[in-house]
Write a protein that binds this DNA or RNA. Structure first.
Lengths: 236, 236
DNA sequence: CAAGCGTATCGTACTTAGTACCACTTACTT
DNA sequence: AAGTAAGTGGTACTAAGTACGATACGCTTG
């Protein structure tokens, strides 16, 4: 892009790596392509990165760093919600990241800071240790799982069902998958459909359910404000 | 293992591929290692498989085939629960499968049958189409997400925290991650702790919440409690 | 039974990717 | 100016996917 190689740096290397992965997918991120992007030769990168594995670890941490941290003193529900929405947004921006999270198990500082903050809001919000564990596990399973599903959708929007439709359509025509057919034609292919829109519904459902369990195994603890049923209202 | 090469077959190839992935991980599954396992030469495999991508697609479908199908007529909650527990069990048995699900977006027959059955129980259970979509998305996000987390745990049990502990411990000592420390020492490293045990708790929590929304035609209008944005600012 | 043919198997070799090894170049120090 | 360390890159080895045929084997059909 620029003219010729300004001084390399770990920062520039990582930045370029994210750029390549965002633009062309993880598969396109090779040491060679990365070097080319930086107007350098492959081996030069090894001065800033031990090997490709370490590079990938660093990328994961970089993505985690983009997620909004929950504020530890704040209302747990609002804070967890905000960071969960942010997490999904970030992961949608870097779809390749999820594949990495799965493999790389060396959390970097941003990742640890993130976990710490999440545990922090929940504890400060009055959750017992075991309930904190449950809540965190459930919320994150949902967030990551949702993104995972988005990534592996056969039909990611109402129209792009075409390519995949081939193999499906055999079965469709044969009546093997009646419910899938109903679902696809009556729901998915309907005008306003957008899978991603379901995210917040599920998130709220889970947060509400957690609120009910709030403080469990801490019989003494009382839930200050949002234990009181709010007047029923629409969510938005 | 065996003596010499019995006749190859697609079945044998896939079986061997699953075996290698189970035993040594996806990374160890190469056309060459697969051929070796079958006492054959790499190129022989291409008579049963178009290319490696197709092989991976087939493996995903094979894993889906192992998951217990919900029975379409039965009690939706019980059936969804049973298949969800089964799904987690299967995915835990083949940890590499999740990574594939993420990439491969060509559902095979078993996968489609699976989706169809899930949609079927929910519809038969009285869920509206939109609520079916929500319910399925939420449950599967949770199931897949939970497995994903299990796969990427830095500390997967009370003791094996050692290897990873290096990078973490810097921060631990420095007091950067107080809540992580509390969590690790007071909860994770406690005798009976086992992350996987949390699965059913969360699953039930979600199913209960879905039961509340059961049959809603316009889901967002019946949030049970505290679905209203709280006035910001006041917190403890 | 021989000739012919389709299917299964494999030998060879090309391509892409990660990276070890070492040489060179440059910039900063003294 | 000379020495040194840090940065850069050329070459080449290895692993993996797979294209392109060639061969081998068994089963028909004359």
């Amino acid at each position: 892009m620029g003219e010729q190689a300004r001084q390399l740096s770990r920062e520039r290397v990582l930045e370029a790596a994210v750029g390549i992965a965002d633009a062309h997918g993880l598969g396109a991120l090779t040491m060679r392509s990365l070097a080319a992007e930086l107007n350098a030769k492959p081996m030069s990168l090894y001065h800033y990165i031990r090997n490709k594995d370490e590079l990938l670890d660093a990328l994961v941490d970089r993505v985690f760093a983009e997620i909004e941290l929950p504020e530890v003193g704040g209302d747990w529900r609002a804070e967890v919600r905000r960071r969960s929405v942010s997490a999904r947004t970030v992961l949608a921006r870097h779809p390749w990241a999820l594949a990495l999270v799965e493999t790389r198990t060396n959390p970097g500082p941003a990742t640890l800071r993130h976990h710490d903050a999440m545990l922090g809001v929940l504890r400060a919000g009055g959750f017992s240790l075991p309930m904190t564990a449950h809540a965190y596990a459930i919320v994150d399973a949902y967030v990551f799982g949702f993104v995972l599903q988005e990534a592996s959708l056969p039909f990611d929007s109402a129209d792009s069902a075409n390519a995949v439709a081939d193999s499906i359509m055999e079965g469709f025509a044969s009546g093997d998958y009646p419910h899938l057919v109903e679902f696809a034609t009556q729901h998915v292919q309907q005008p306003g459909y957008h899978f991603g829109g379901q995210f917040e519904f599920g998130l709220d459902l889970i947060l509400d359910a957690l609120a009910v369990h709030h403080g469990a195994s801490h019989p003494s603890s009382i839930r200050p404000e949002n234990g009181v049923p709010q007047p029923p209202g629409r969510s938005r």
